[in-house]
């Protein structure tokens, strides 16, 4: 148990009076643009192990805000090239680290946004991803053998973005594995067979089914019930029963409901208000909850959720791939979406 919750200084607790309905647009742009400029920063050093994803979160958020040109395309692409492992073809989060399917997806997503897939060896990526599939259809995250439904999503997302879903992996088995992680009790999905339903993993599994055109396998009524129960009186969404609301779950629950054609099942207005109270009006950026420190991860998912909710001044975002819709259109990709009943 951590005592910080008891001895918290008074300036950060209590009711937040930030009832503003404005999006601090330029503050957020500035926040993302400056993120990582101070490379001696402790946080920067501590988060090196997920740098590639950090860049993806920043690039995507800025593109959704139509400010992509604030980042240096050339140096980002150079960085990505340096992170491709010459042996396996997978991407590391940063130079000096090991490749992993999580950062491979982030790298491919950034390259797609920059229309720069030709800059890397895509065949090697395909080999890396298909080599991680197991006999039961699941995917390892890297050569050390952890299995997780997140990795199933990463695999099909990468192959879809590369246009290489055909003939590279066993899709039927992959589907079978993901469906074996569906809980009969609530219609949700966990990280492994039998694991508790979790909004982030539901996004991965629903997204996976959307990319493999198999949404008919979902029990939409059950899963929809569970997802709607994530909305709390504050308007915010949590990721599991009895948890606090969190901006990143706004994205995971909203995108899942959107893919299922059931976005209208939650109160969009209240959620919008909740997300806006999680902005940091001084530094820019979004935090997980009102009054906490902002970070780049929650900033993307705050902006992404507002985009799904149709917030003015933001580009449309694709709910399955969490990338700007125009990029998905440019690639000619059509993830499955169920129509509103």
């Amino acid at each position: 148990m951590d005592f910080t919750s008891f001895a918290k200084p008074s300036n950060v607790d209590g009711n937040n009076e930030n009832n503003s309905t404005d999006l601090h647009f330029w503050k957020h742009v500035e926040y993302i643009e400056n993120h990582g400029k101070d490379q001696d920063d402790y946080e920067y050093c501590m988060t090196e192990f997920l740098r590639m994803s950090g860049i993806y979160w920043g690039v995507t958020a800025l593109d959704i805000m139509n400010q992509l040109d604030r980042l240096d395309r050339t140096s980002i692409i150079d960085f990505i090239r340096r992170c491709q492992c010459p042996v396996t073809g997978g991407f590391a989060p940063c130079e000096g680290h090991d490749p992993h399917i999580l950062y491979t997806l982030s790298a491919i997503q950034i390259l797609c946004i920059y229309d720069a897939l030709n800059e890397i060896d895509c065949e090697a990526v395909v080999r890396y991803v298909s080599g991680l599939q197991q006999f039961d259809g699941s995917f390892f995250g890297d050569k050390w053998g952890e299995v997780d439904t997140r990795f199933s999503f990463c695999a099909v997302a990468i192959l879809t973005l590369l246009g290489r879903m055909e003939g590279t992996i066993n899709v039927d088995r992959a589907i079978k594995f993901v469906m074996s992680c569906c809980n009969q009790t609530d219609g949700g999905f966990g990280s492994k067979p039998g694991a508790e339903s979790h909004a982030g993993l539901i996004y991965c599994c629903v997204g996976f089914l959307s990319l493999t055109q198999s949404l008919h396998l979902l029990d939409v009524d059950k899963l929809g019930w569970w997802l709607c129960e994530r909305q709390l009186t504050s308007g915010g969404l949590n990721g599991r029963p009895e948890k606090l609301p969190d901006v990143c779950y706004s994205w995971w629950v909203l995108s899942s409901l959107t893919i299922m054609g059931r976005l209208h099942w939650i109160s969009a207005e209240k959620l919008k208000q909740f997300i806006l109270t999680c902005q940091d009006s001084e530094t820019g950026g979004f935090a997980d909850r009102t009054g906490n420190m902002p970070d780049i991860f929650h900033t993307l998912f705050g902006i992404g959720a507002l985009s799904i909710l149709g917030f003015e001044g933001l580009k449309a975002i694709n709910p399955t791939l969490c990338m700007p819709q125009y990029v998905i259109d440019r690639l000619g990709i059509k993830p499955q979406i169920l129509s509103k009943p």
């Binding site: 000096g96 680290h97 890297d142």
Partner: peptide, 13 residues
């Protein structure tokens, strides 16, 4: 100090 760094765990492996 930083328990989440997969690469460091991999070196131990």
């Amino acid at each position: 100090i930083n328990t989440d760094v997969a690469t460091f765990w991999n070196i131990r492996r």
